[in-house]
Amino acid sequence: MSTMQVEVVSNEENIYSGEASFVVVPTLEGELGIYPRHEPIMSLVRPGTLRLTVPNQKQEILVAVSGGVLEVQPNKLTLLADVAVRSEEMDQQRAEEAKKIAESGIHEAKDDVSLAKAHVALAAAIAQLKTLDYLRTHRK
């Protein structure tokens, strides 16, 4: 089985570093499936679920990403995420509460900086909710 090196990094930490045989990335143009030896590309990432198929591992690794930049080389995929959270660190109730707080922050923003921060928080909460929904529908 052919693999590629995958690096997923957020502003706070290294989320995943290792090999994968297949990766699905939520891009602005839609979900992009990437196998090893893919043509080089760069793309913007939208809020959603990053899915990693790892050799010798039954379950996909799921990561909620709120946006960022993707670079693909034939044997390496790098995703620099604005915010990224692994699925095992997520909680439905916390994500829903974070979404409500972010939406309130958008409505109450008094300047561009607070509005931008609220939009980032909303994107992160939406990405987590999408990932939790994917878990519910695909892992029973």
Results as ranks from 00 to 15, higher is better:
M1Q: 09
S2Q: 13
T3A: 13
Q5V: 14
V6C: 05
E7I: 15
E7H: 12
V9S: 10
S10Y: 11
S10Q: 09
N11C: 14
N11Q: 14
E12A: 14
E12L: 12
N14A: 15
N14C: 15
N14R: 14
I15G: 09
I15S: 08
Y16L: 09
Y16R: 06
Y16D: 09
G18W: 00
G18A: 10
E19W: 00
E19K: 12
A20Y: 08
A20H: 08
F22C: 04
V23E: 01
V23M: 01
V24N: 08
V25F: 04
V25L: 04
P26R: 00
P26K: 00
P26T: 09
L28Q: 06
L28K: 05
E29G: 09
E31L: 09
L32E: 07
G33W: 00
G33K: 01
G33P: 00
P36C: 05
R37Y: 14
R37P: 07
H38C: 12
E39Q: 14
I41S: 12
M42K: 08
L44K: 03
G48R: 00
T49C: 14
L50S: 01
R51C: 05
R51S: 12
P55A: 00
N56V: 02
N56H: 11
N56G: 06
K58C: 00
K58Q: 11
Q59R: 07
E60M: 05
I61W: 00
I61N: 07
L62T: 12
V65R: 03
G68T: 04
G68F: 04
V69W: 07
L70G: 08
L70Q: 06
E71R: 14
E71F: 11
V72Y: 11
Q73T: 15
Q73M: 15
Q73N: 13
Q73R: 15
P74Y: 05
L77G: 04
T78K: 07
D82V: 10
A84N: 09
A84E: 10
V85K: 10
R86L: 12
S87D: 13
S87G: 01
E89S: 14
D91Y: 10
A95G: 04
A95S: 15
A95M: 04
E96W: 00
K99N: 07
K99L: 15
K100T: 14
K100W: 05
A102C: 01
A102H: 02
E103T: 04
S104H: 11
S104R: 13
G105D: 03
G105F: 01
G105N: 02
I106R: 01
I106T: 07
E108V: 10
A109Y: 05
A109K: 02
K110V: 15
K110F: 13
D112T: 13
D112A: 15
V113F: 15
S114D: 14
L115V: 08
L115Q: 02
A116W: 06
K117L: 15
V120Q: 11
V120M: 13
A121C: 08
A121W: 02
A123E: 03
A124V: 07
A125C: 10
A125G: 08
A127C: 06
A127V: 10
Q128V: 10
Q128W: 05
L129D: 04
L132W: 09
L132H: 10
D133K: 13
D133G: 12
D133L: 12
L135A: 03
L135N: 03
R136W: 00
